[in-house]
């Protein structure tokens, strides 16, 4: 019994560590948003004003107060750790067709675990609060605005009209 429990111990440890790592990566992503936008803008719209504007607009992300929500990412990572632990548990040597199935099972488990880890990361990012507002809520509202064409009007007013400075 004790041996069994010890063999399962890596699951919660890895799960929690993975979940916290996902949250940390989400925080770094938010902090690095201006750089990410600059990079993406450089590829999609090189030299365009909109890319530079987006970098300026999101520059407060570098220092904005963040609140992380690691619970859901931890759950995803626990599941991933559990699957990997089960898939790679010590067993008797498989022969013939069973060996092939075993390799396939392990490969699928790894893929699924990676999927769960990515889900954990995106869940962490979605739930991260910046200035008290969830990142996911802003993405959702921005998407709705983009989809409806609401943001087209912004490109016209983005350039300030300066009176002659004395």
């Amino acid at each position: 019994m004790k041996k069994r429990i010890l063999s399962l111990l890596p699951v919660p440890i890895a799960g929690c560590a993975g979940g916290l790592l996902c949250s940390l990566l989400a925080a770094l992503t938010v902090r690095g948003l201006p750089r990410i936008l600059s990079f993406v803008g450089g590829i999609l719209a090189p030299g365009e004003e909109i890319a530079r504007t987006l970098v300026r607009v999101f520059s407060p992300m570098k220092t904005a107060p963040l609140r992380l929500r690691p619970l859901l990412p931890i759950l995803f990572c626990l599941l991933a750790a559990g699957i990997l632990c089960f898939a790679f548990r010590p067993r008797g040597k498989a022969v013939g067709g069973r060996r092939g199935l075993s390799i396939l099972f392990r490969a699928l488990s790894v893929l699924f675990a990676v999927f769960l880890l990515l889900s954990g990361f995106f869940a962490a990012l979605w739930l991260t609060e910046v200035n008290g507002i969830r990142f996911g809520d802003v993405i959702r509202s921005l998407y709705a605005a983009l989809h409806s064409g609401a943001l087209d009007s912004l490109s016209a007013s983005a350039v300030p009209i300066y009176p002659e400075v004395l």
Partner: peptide, 8 residues
């Protein structure tokens, strides 16, 4: 909402 998110 966006302005709050940006800290403005």
């Amino acid at each position: 909402l966006w302005y709050r998110f940006l800290g403005i």
